[in-house]
Write a protein that binds this DNA or RNA. Structure first.
Length: 346
DNA sequence: AAGACAGACAACCGCGACCGG
DNA sequence: ACCGGTCGCGGTTGTCTGTCT
């Protein structure tokens, strides 16, 4: 493959951009726009390939770029979004005004590096239950990576965006050139990033429309109501879209084990999907967690889990370290596990 | 003061998706 | 349907800089 076709020319410069090059690019883009990136270098008088120009513009020179450290709100949002969509940095970035996918990716990766070292230092305590972003150890990340299902991109984008716009209530992106850099996006997420678990064993018909009223969403939209229990707050309910085609009413659990109050521990939290299926079950005893779902909730008592439902359970103990082998074992018993997000114990 | 090291950031590379001919 | 050009994305590598020894 090698380079992009526009980069095959011999005289293409690589490496860091000089201020002069930046100035040329900015001047050209601001006056002409960037219709075709392959033409930009020549017209702007740059010895770069179009791809490099595009990258430089998008990641660095764009006027609406927001620089500086990530705020706590942004951090939470990144964690939460990553729990939902995984390493889809562009998608995550689209919900963080002024931030680039590259920036978020770098931030996440450096974060992971930190977390890799910490568990290695302390082998006795859990590596995933102490800090955020939780499933950020290399081991768990790698292991979780293959658990993620290749989502149907179009549907998922649509539905996830709907979810984010509805439930996260992101503020509108700042206007270009406004200079308002000190107003982090308000992200009314629970203080603890929940685990997510999906189940494809339930098949439903897709939504007829995504544009109905809010009330209609409750009834017709396949968004799931789920509970995110937080340590200090009452459980917050969100509507979450199915992330996989055809799994609209699939059950999903989203709980923070460590964040439960004492009265919450050991209870079974259930939220019925709008088709009567998709009961999200969660049992938490002691320091351990158990997530599961059952297609026919009414057939089960609160604490009853038969063999079939056990197939849809993911269980682990808070003291159990998440390693690839552990997760593989979990996966083998949790047949329908698609994606598990982080647990965030502050 | 100098080298080692780690973190942050910038840029490149490879690949898939999309689109028009 | 096929093909080539282009764009966009995610993974990876390179570079710079601050801190530690």
């Amino acid at each position: 493959m090698g380079h992009h076709s526009c980069c095959n020319q011999q005289k293409v410069k690589r490496g860091l951009w000089s201020p002069e090059e930046d100035e040329k690019l900015i001047r050209y883009i601001t006056t002409h726009g960037y219709g075709c990136w392959s033409e930009v270098p020549e017209k702007a008088g740059l010895q770069r390939c179009g791809k490099s120009c595009r990258l430089r513009w998008i990641n660095y020179l764009r006027p609406d770029i927001r620089r500086g450290r990530f705020t706590a709100e942004e951090e939470k949002l990144i964690i939460s979004l990553h729990a939902i969509v995984g390493n889809r940095w562009a998608h995550i970035a689209s919900h963080l005004p002024g931030r680039t996918d590259n920036e978020i990716k770098n931030y996440w990766n450096s974060w992971i590096k930190k977390k890799i070292r910490k568990p290695a230092m302390s082998t006795t305590s859990s590596s995933v239950t102490t800090s955020s972003p939780p499933c950020s150890t290399a081991a768990s990340d790698a292991a979780l990576g293959h658990l993620q299902t290749p989502f149907s991109a179009a549907a998922e984008h649509l539905q996830l965006d709907a979810f984010l716009s509805q439930s996260l209530a992101l503020p509108p992106p700042p206007k270009l050139g406004s200079g308002g850099q000190e107003s982090p996006p308000a992200a009314p997420l629970p203080p603890h990033c929940p685990f997510f678990m999906f189940d494809t064993s339930v098949s439903v018909s897709p939504p007829s429309s995504l544009t109905s009223t809010a009330a209609a969403h409750q009834l017709q939209h396949p968004f799931l109501t789920f509970t995110a229990a937080a340590m200090d707050d009452a459980p917050i309910s969100y509507h979450l879209p199915p992330l996989v085609d055809g799994m609209g009413m699939a059950g999903m659990a989203a709980m923070d084990c460590g964040g439960l109050g004492e009265e919450e521990r050991g209870h079974d939290h259930r939220e019925a999907g709008n088709n009567g299926h998709a009961v999200v079950g969660m049992a938490n005893g002691g320091g351990g967690c158990c997530y599961g779902q059952k297609e026919e909730p009414t057939a089960l008592g609160q604490d009853q889990w038969d063999d079939e439902s056990a197939q849809h359970l993911l269980m682990w103990d808070d003291d159990q370290e998440l390693t690839p082998s552990n997760l593989e074992a979990m996966e083998s018993t949790a047949h329908s596990l698609l994606f598990m997000g982080p647990n965030d114990h502050a």
